[in-house]
Write a protein that binds this DNA or RNA. Structure first.
Length: 107
DNA sequence: CGCAGTCTAGCAC
DNA sequence: GTGCTAGACTGCG
């Protein structure tokens, strides 16, 4: 039985490059409504903040945003998060994802 | 904009 | 070991 936290990373890891997901979706997939717990798990993810990027075992925290497509808190700073997303082809404007409904990954 | 609901992790006793 | 607080959220008033 994987830990709650492990499940979160597993789902987040499934998000393809150039796509994003939301805390809500992840929580729903886990069959819970603890959206906060999802964010907490991400913040405490043992993969290491520096691994929030381009390794296969990574957990792309920067691809996980609020349900409204707005960038919420990020340990590295929202500017860093926006930078990573733009690097994947995702446009960010005023800390918000453009065409969010088009790139959001919903299993 | 502000309050309540839900779950985990961390700190205190 | 048990209990309480805080937190990368969301929905409703």
């Amino acid at each position: 039985m994987k830990s709650f936290n492990e499940k979160i990373w597993e789902l987040a890891r499934k998000v393809p490059k150039g796509r994003v997901t939301t805390y809500k979706i992840l929580a729903e997939k886990l069959g819970t409504r603890a959206y906060r717990a999802v964010g907490t798990a991400m913040n405490r993810n043992p993969n290491g903040l520096m691994n929030c990027g381009y390794s296969k075992e990574m957990v792309p925290c920067h691809r996980v945003v609020a349900s409204s497509g707005h960038l919420h808190g990020f340990a590295h700073g929202l500017e860093k998060k926006a930078e990573l997303l733009e690097n994947e082809g995702i446009k960010i404007k005023d800390d918000k994802i453009i065409n969010f409904e088009k790139i959001v990954f919903r299993p």
